[in-house]
Amino acid sequence: MSDKLVTEQTKKLIGLESEPFMVEVERGAIRRFAEAIGDPNPVFNDERAARKARFGTMVAPPTFCRSFGAVPMLRELNLGTHRVLDGGSEWEYFEPIRPGDRITVVSRLADIRETKGRLGPMALVVVETSYTNQFGELCVTQRSTSIHY
């Protein structure tokens, strides 16, 4: 592996935005996600119980947007690395995501820099993603860091 993972040319990609894509939120997908993470909260699982709760409908658990698919731009970075680890995420919540919502997803390459880890040179890639519903209301933002080595 070369000792320079993040070239000047790669750095020029900072600020790049992905093509927006849309995801239609299915009730069953919310329920399956809640079941997979093992969260029994009725507002994520049970339409009948959720009707009596605050939003009058089921809503998505906090990390549900992870099911909307990989960030397309990460595939285009071509860092020449083989392994990737999730470094962490910062989420901010504005509007709940409800069944039937059509969520537009846009990602932006916020930062990319090289660091030296135990396993050699690593690239830290920070991507900011916004999730906006069909009414133009911002629901969620996510700032996630991935480690490429």
């Binding site: 993470i37 969260d39 909260n41 658990p61 906090p62 990390t63 992870r66 680890l85 999730d86 995420s89």
Partner: peptide, 16 residues
């Protein structure tokens, strides 16, 4: 374990 699954566990702690 998926990092995102551990994230979801902490999401459950917070929403509970």
């Amino acid at each position: 374990i998926h990092g995102a699954l551990k994230n979801a566990f902490l999401g459950q702690l917070a929403t509970d």
